[in-house]
Every structure is written in structure tokens, then in C-alpha cells.
Design a protein around this nucleic acid. Structure first.
Lengths: 177, 177
DNA sequence: TCCTATCTGGACGGTGCGTCCGGTTGTACT
DNA sequence: AGTACAACCGGACGCACCGTCCAGATAGGA
């Protein structure tokens, strides 16, 4: 990749994080381009769609979550590993207003950029979840995918943008059979 | 209200229910007008905004929920009354794809048409909830408003549009302290 | 230096919102 | 019946955003 192309790529990612973080995931694409000091054309060439940009922004976080889910296999207390991972998952999507809900909806859609990105993470989590199920009685009819969607859809505090704490607690408690 | 105005009003409501039910809450307003056999101008005069139309559509359901919450005071088994009401609440918002999430967000916003509409229902539910809290140990940090938002945000089955059953169960179970 | 990959940014066509208004129609009242 | 006016029609409008396309400018690298 050429040097200026690389620069622009990085600038776009940084700008996107700033703009979406501040104005939410509905912010105009053009604002992102402007904030990156880049033409609209350049933005769209690199990220054909808003979704692709989201995927790029979330890349790091999702990788981190994936790695964390894999590391969790070494933690003896499975229930604790599971609930801490879910808390981490919850926190990760709250940097950008509206992102969490979006992710929750495209999570299981492999035709979407975000869905594809999350594939490996979903698998890792599913393994963790199924392992937990063998050691702790979990609600039998709940699938890992449902659980993730559910956490993504939890209400956010409009001030801080963070998930309303008690709601997450309810989910974690309700998880057990 | 003049007779033709009344006719149009009714036609618009019926059309809105049909269109939003079939195409989701993002469906173009113009489709609603067309389906009602009415001009765009007429539609907007009666319902200045999409939100107002939602409020009108939901009126019946919300009244029903409100009445049901009040009746629930006479049910001896408070926990049962509470959980059955929540199931009803959940079912009520699922007629229109996307409506549930929208309601969840404007529920506590008294500046929105839907929020205003739901005010009385929210109060009735809050009373039911607090009464339940006195007889059953409920998670102490959870407010009724948070609970409603949470239920509204539960993931939907993309086929049927209905809430994913296990998720609702998780919430009901997690409700208890 | 010079070729070429890349960028720029405006124009474009498309969709949807919500407003406005001149011309028309239906209603209610006398 | 006749009339006055409420209500409707529906197209035009301005706005915002999406995502595409491209001709001209430019910067990287051999």
C-alpha cells in the first residue's frame, strides 16, 4: 500500500472513531471524510459502505474479545469467566452511541461486514458458553447467539452511553437455570 | 369533526397498521398515504410526524395495557400478575417490526408523542411493580422504567417478529433478587 | 524524471422527509 | 337548493443523506 494511501486509511479510521463516538453511528459519512481531511471519493473507495467502516473500527475490539474468550478456557471458575467476558463484551460496544444495537442485529448475519468480522468471536464465545453449561446449570433453551443479541440490546444511559447496570445484572442472574 | 375527515382519519390508521405491520416502522410515509387513498398533505396535517402516527396506532394497545396493569392490583399472586403483565407488554409491541425498539427509546421521553401516550401506563405499571417488590424480593437497584426499556429491547425472531422466548424468560428470572 | 496509483471534490441520481399552496371537492347549515 | 367554508388533493419545493462516477490534480516510487 502506498504511503499516502496508508496515511489516509489511518486518518479515516481515527476520524470515524471520533465522529461516530461523538455524533453516533448515524452521523453523515461526509462528516467523517471531512474530519479525516479526505475527499468523499476516497472514503467510499476504501470503505464501500457504512457497515464496512464500522467493521474496520471495531476490528481491534472484536479481536480483543475473541482472544479474551479463548484465554477464558484456562480460568478454572467457568461461571466467573463467562460473566466477566459478557461484561467486557458489553463495555466494548458502548464507545459509539447506537453501535450496540446495530451490532446486535447484524451479529448473526454473515452477509454483513460486521457479522463476518464477529464470526470467530462468536465461535469462541459459543465454546466458552457450552463449556460453562456443563459445569453450571444454565437455562437450557438459550443459545449463545441469543444471549449476545440480548446483551447488545440492553438499554443505555442517555448521559453516559453506558449500559444501565442493573439490566446487565438481571441478564447474568437470569442466565442460570 | 367532519364526516370525510373522520373517514380519512380512520383510513389512515388502518393503512398505517397494515403498512407498518408489513414493511416495518421505517416504511415511507407516502406509502401509508397511498394505502389510505389519501394525499400526502392530508396525512401530514393529521399526524405532523411519524411519531404521532405511531402514537395513534398504539393508542388502543397502550390503553389496554394500562387497564390491565390496574386490574392486576386485584390479583392476589403479585408475582404472577407482574410476570403476566410483562408478557402482555412484550407481545403488544411486536405487531410492527422495529416498533418495540423505538418504543423502548422514547418511553421515558415526555417530549415525544409515544412517551406522552405511555405516561399513564408507565405509572400504573410502576405501582404494580412497587407493590410486587413488597411481597417478593426483587432486585433492589432496578427501576420499573429500566425494566420496560429492557423488555422492549429484547431480540426479535426475524421470521416471526416475536420476541425470542428464552430471552424474556431470562429477564423474568433475573428480576428476583 | 516520468509513469502511474491515488486522491480530490463536485455533480449526479436516488430516496425520504416534512412544508406549502393553488385548485378542487364535500359537508353542513340555512 | 344554495352557499360558505372546512377539508382534501397532489405536485412542487427545499433539505439532507446515500453511494456512484469521473476529469483533473497530485504525490509516490522506480
Amino acid at each position: 500500500m502506498r504511503a499516502d494511501a496508508q496515511r489516509n486509511h489511518d486518518a479515516i479510521l481515527a476520524a470515524a472513531k471520533a465522529v461516530f463516538g461523538h455524533a453516533g453511528t448515524d452521523a453523515p459519512m461526509e462528516d467523517v471524510a471531512r474530519a479525516a481531511g479526505v475527499g468523499k471519493g476516497t472514503l467510499y473507495r476504501r470503505f464501500p459502505t457504512r457497515e464496512h467502516l464500522f467493521a474496520a473500527i471495531l476490528q481491534d475490539r472484536v479481536d480483543e474479545l475473541n482472544a479474551s474468550a479463548q484465554r477464558a478456557h484456562d480460568i478454572p471458575d467457568v461461571w466467573r469467566a463467562l460473566s466477566e467476558w459478557l461484561e467486557l463484551y458489553d463495555r466494548c460496544a458502548t464507545d459509539y452511541p447506537g453501535m450496540s444495537a446495530r451490532v446486535g442485529e447484524s451479529l448473526s448475519d454473515d452477509n454483513s461486514a460486521v457479522g463476518t468480522l464477529c464470526g470467530p468471536m462468536r465461535s469462541s464465545f459459543a465454546r466458552l458458553f457450552e463449556r460453562a453449561r456443563q459445569e453450571v446449570p444454565l437455562r437450557p433453551d438459550l443459545t449463545p447467539a441469543q444471549l449476545l443479541s440480548m446483551v447488545s440490546g440492553l438499554p443505555k444511559d442517555s448521559r453516559t452511553g453506558r449500559t444501565v447496570e442493573p439490566c446487565l445484572r438481571v441478564v447474568l442472574d437470569g442466565l442460570r437455570a
